[in-house]
Design a protein around this nucleic acid. Sequence first.
DNA 1: CTGAAAGCGCTAACAT
DNA 2: ATGTTAGCGCTTTCAG
Lengths: 331, 331
Amino acid sequence: MPISKNKGAPTIGDIADLVGVSRSSVSRAFGKPELLSEDTVKKIRKAAEKLGYFPNQAARALSTGRPGNLAIVVPDIANAFSPPLIRAAQLAADSHGMSLFLGDSGEDPAREFTLLNRLVVQTEGFVLVSSRMPDKKIKEIAEKHPLVLINRDISGISRVLIDTSPGVEAAVVHLAEIKHKKIAYVGGPSVSWSEQQRRGAVRRAAEREGLTVEYVRSGHATFDAGREAASAVIAAKASAAIAFDDVVAHGLLAGLNELGYRVPQDISVIGCDDVLGAATYPALTSVSARHIEAGRMAIEMLLNMIEEPTISNVRIALDTKLVVRATTAPR
Amino acid sequence: MPISKNKGAPTIGDIADLVGVSRSSVSRAFGKPELLSEDTVKKIRKAAEKLGYFPNQAARALSTGRPGNLAIVVPDIANAFSPPLIRAAQLAADSHGMSLFLGDSGEDPAREFTLLNRLVVQTEGFVLVSSRMPDKKIKEIAEKHPLVLINRDISGISRVLIDTSPGVEAAVVHLAEIKHKKIAYVGGPSVSWSEQQRRGAVRRAAEREGLTVEYVRSGHATFDAGREAASAVIAAKASAAIAFDDVVAHGLLAGLNELGYRVPQDISVIGCDDVLGAATYPALTSVSARHIEAGRMAIEMLLNMIEEPTISNVRIALDTKLVVRATTAPR
DNA sequence: CTGAAAGCGCTAACAT
DNA sequence: ATGTTAGCGCTTTCAG
């Protein structure tokens, strides 16, 4: 029966009373045990265990200015790209004893801004995935709070970029090697950083390899958009198609099937981001996205920035590879 | 140029100095403006705006014991079931001015427990989705912290359950109506609450409708498990199959295709949870899961519990419907 | 209607 | 090696 007038959770005071030491000692037993005798540390730890003590982060935050929390904000958590990335980030944060706030901006820059401001004091830093805010707002926040961007390239701010160019180029080379002459690129939203990158990579590699490429717009990067693009791909007489992402590729597979074409016998298909795993039939050849690494690395970078505020403006580009599965075959 | 010696964010003190009132007044201007003259409230708000003031949640938490945060913990955020649910929860929390912590337990009960304890003081309540912890631990936490369960049925603790039974029964009825006589049920992990529920519903409805049903184990609830189950479904001479969830159904589609069977001409397939949307070809007939509502409602319930601690032990069961798309056809 | 003062749980000098 | 003190930013009595 601990001597505690407390209604709520046990505090360092309760432990101090129980053990018969000062509250500072209890604090030190957790924060800087090397300053205490082994014996007292042990006693304090035992008492803490017995009382079911967990440090009050809010109080610690107030005192140290270090909340021990991080936040990650995405435009849409329901996008297949996000969850593995978030998961990796959560794991990384957790392994450093940090908790993670999740924000979903719903693609709305204003919401994103408010969300972030509300979180500033509760966190030590942010990871923003494909932020929708204008450069100016991002810089404004970055000035007062450690910040790492994923898939947004603003010089002066630390960022990790998933560079799909190498993978996409490899995809084109792969198609050339298996004798395709004319391919289609089914694009995504033209404003997107990734779309520009991918389209450019296709063009460059196709020129180099002597392929001709037909550009098909899909605009929305949805399954249906991909499905509807199938007829355009056929009309273009392409024997292979590279899609903006896996979802579009998946739709394309369906559309092709629907029109009576067989993949990969009649036509080859390649996706991007590799978010579907092998969960299509036939298993989709795709460009790996390394979003898991991106999530983990962003957190690690953020933690470094927090420890060493002089480090900022690091730019990491993760290159990508082609993962060949079953939707590509020789013409 | 505000008169602030502060390195960090502006505080109520800064505002107080600027306006020439006491810190209490500034505090009240936000928390209880009705206690102040309209005029001072206006002046304070304006100054706050100018300084870019955002209240320090940690400090408020320390003082009031109400951190203004909630947490949601899932076994695996990468599971297709989670993201829409989390998104809905995030939105609901946000609309009440609350921020949301995200925890991913990685299916590990011990991790889940530590995670939660670390979050207790920083949050006003938890939503646990398909918790992996034993009843005892859950109850232990529920005693000291407001808690709402999703898809876990423990009496004495508030919970929202997605009851797939009605939808699954409707699926069986639907198959009976279109003249199927023998169907297969491709099950999931037998420990799961959902699996027991679904299997039971299939059995009951089949008896009632005079269908015979063959139980095929898949065990892991993965795309591959579904694909491999295809041959067993064929071997059972079933003309239709109901799968544990959409992912298994999707795999089944692939497996059937691979074996040369056409869906729905040769065999009908029905999924559960409706997480794939229409993103399969043919578009999958499925049992709606209402996880979005579940996420939103869990947060609302939690908020109610926090306001009115006497309310606990509410049990909400969301019923489900069959969504008929293109993978079912008359035998 | 507004100010003064105390305190939430913890950490960090500064003693000893 | 440990105790004492002050203070982090905010809310909340209690006085005016």
